[in-house]
Amino acid sequence: MKVRLGLVGVLAAGLALAMSGCLGQWFRPRPTLIIGDPVISGGTGTVLISVANMPEGGLASIAVETDGMTYDQAKIKDVTITGKSGFVVLASEFDDATGKGRFVLANPTGGCEGGMIAQLDFVVQGDVTSADFAFAEEHIDLGSAADRLVTDWELAVGTPYYAR
């Protein structure tokens, strides 16, 4: 019994010291807007829009203005957007003639620090990849739950995994 207690104590202390000694410092990443890879199913496709590390209570609004989103109109048509995780679509416009889209979403119940916020659905004509969608940071505004613009954020396209 005493041997077991001693063994457990030494094991726990040793592991704790070893872990603390080996620990590297973690630095919080910048707030990130994540555009997922297109998922094609039959003649329709889906792109998920997510966020990670959003500050001040989380993301509460997003505005993508003209030239904020473009797509290959030869392959992608009839684009629609749906809010997720409490986000509501306030306005949206997708022009298949020019291949440009813009939309505004808001979350009336709170902020989202990390997770999915919207879903784009579209009709597919041809082989669609993530290169057929383009988002421009300079034409996108993010608002936090503290009613302030999120600054110093970055856009991630094709990031396969993220953590919250």
Partner: peptide, 24 residues
């Protein structure tokens, strides 16, 4: 901690989150 697959929204959840700022 919850780890998400960005293309599908699928996720896996665990109780230990190492995303903590600071060392030691």
């Amino acid at each position: 901690i919850t780890i998400y697959h960005s293309a599908t929204g699928l996720s896996r959840h665990y109780v230990t989150n190492p995303m903590v700022a600071g060392a030691g």
